[in-house]
Write a protein that binds this DNA or RNA. Structure first.
Lengths: 210, 210
DNA sequence: GTCTATATCCAGATAGAC
DNA sequence: GTCTATCTGGATATAGAC
């Protein structure tokens, strides 16, 4: 792991600070101090405070595109491999969600950026659309495709995969936002989420068909 | 309808402005201009900008307490009147949600205050707890009690009422936050929500018991 | 690329006349 | 209760030496 350049440190520390109280509440001097330089030095790396904000978004967009690529790869592989859907048990779903939630909550950049987006989402229509795309629609559509495959594979009983995806995904999203706000509740609500997934699976698994 | 005092107008306009980009992005001069006075005059009504912020919360707390009182009244009446649970059909649920969502989205104070809370929720543990209580737990617990009553009345099949409440309530909360961000999507997502409720009811109604 | 010194601006808030 | 004039502090950003 090579060490960070000053330019990278600025983005990292700015994200950390912005994700607490938002863009306006943080001064360039605070960012510079966190990096270990004086405010004017910072302007050799970025031409304005807003340029730092933009750089955060550029960096997170790069990561997002990578993840999306591998997610699409995963699903389209699964689509040609019915066996993968057939083997998607409730334990695998629980495991998948725990991995996702754990990553989302504890990855420094991911969780801080989500908080920043939550704070700044109303500033422009572009930010609003970005939020919906990244934190709602992507997860919804991924699970819609997953459940459609599971229905076709005979693992889940028939139904509207989109409504099923809403019912499955929404509690997880609410859980994430709850932990962003109150990290001390993580264990408590994680327990509720496992119950949710098992309840969801119990309700929709093929054996319960009427 | 009596006209507003200047003091009330300040709270109202401050909430409108704060709910766009947050507390820091709004100047006292902007608030004063919206009210139709100069900034220094405003200090005859509130001793600081933060005092205006606090006044918003006091006013909304008052309304919240009133609503909670009538909600509790409603539920405890229902508890002694099994008939009310028995008559809770899917159409009544749809109607109830449409009324709630419509009110939450279009009531000026309610929707603006929710946006403000969304922006400012990370500023203190108190605000975080307030957000969770008002926008998550109250609705969850109300529906948990509702579903428990419906199960006992034989309208819904047995199951964990809390998990059921999470599955029912979360998509509605996600929908609200989506419309706060992108009001133009209201019709589109309202449609998904009705599908969600009908799907939920179909899955849980007593006749589908295996 | 970092620093000190500084320009410039605008915010929150006060004083005091009317 | 409203105004004009003003204070004071802190913010973004620049100039220019090292």
């Amino acid at each position: 792991m090579e060490s960070q350049t000053t330019k990278e440190k600025i983005v990292r520390e700015a994200l950390r600070l912005f994700s607490q109280n938002g863009f306006d509440a943080v001064s360039v001097e605070q960012i510079a101090a966190a990096v270990g330089i004086k405010a004017p030095s910072l302007y050799k790396h970025y031409k304005s405070k807003w340029a730092i904000f933009d750089a955060i978004f550029d960096e997170m967009q790069r990561r997002y595109d990578e993840e999306t690529k591998s997610m699409n790869l995963h699903l389209s592989n699964a689509a040609t491999d019915r066996q993968m859907f057939a083997e998607m048990t409730v334990d695998k779903l629980v495991e998948q969600v725990k991995a996702l939630v754990s990553y989302s909550l504890h990855d420094e950049l991911v969780s801080r950026f989500r908080r920043l987006m939550t704070i700044e989402q109303f500033r422009s229509e572009g930010l609003a659309a970005l939020y919906t795309e990244r934190y709602v629609m992507r997860m919804l559509e991924y699970h819609e495709a997953l459940f459609r495959g599971m229905i076709q594979a005979g693992v889940l009983r028939g139904g509207d995969p989109r409504s099923m995806a809403w019912q499955y995904v929404s509690p997880i999203l609410i859980f994430l936002s709850l932990c962003d706000r109150q990290p001390e509740k993580e264990a408590e609500v994680l327990d509720e989420i496992e119950k949710h997934i098992r309840q969801f699976h119990k309700i929709y698994k093929e054996e319960n068909k009427k």
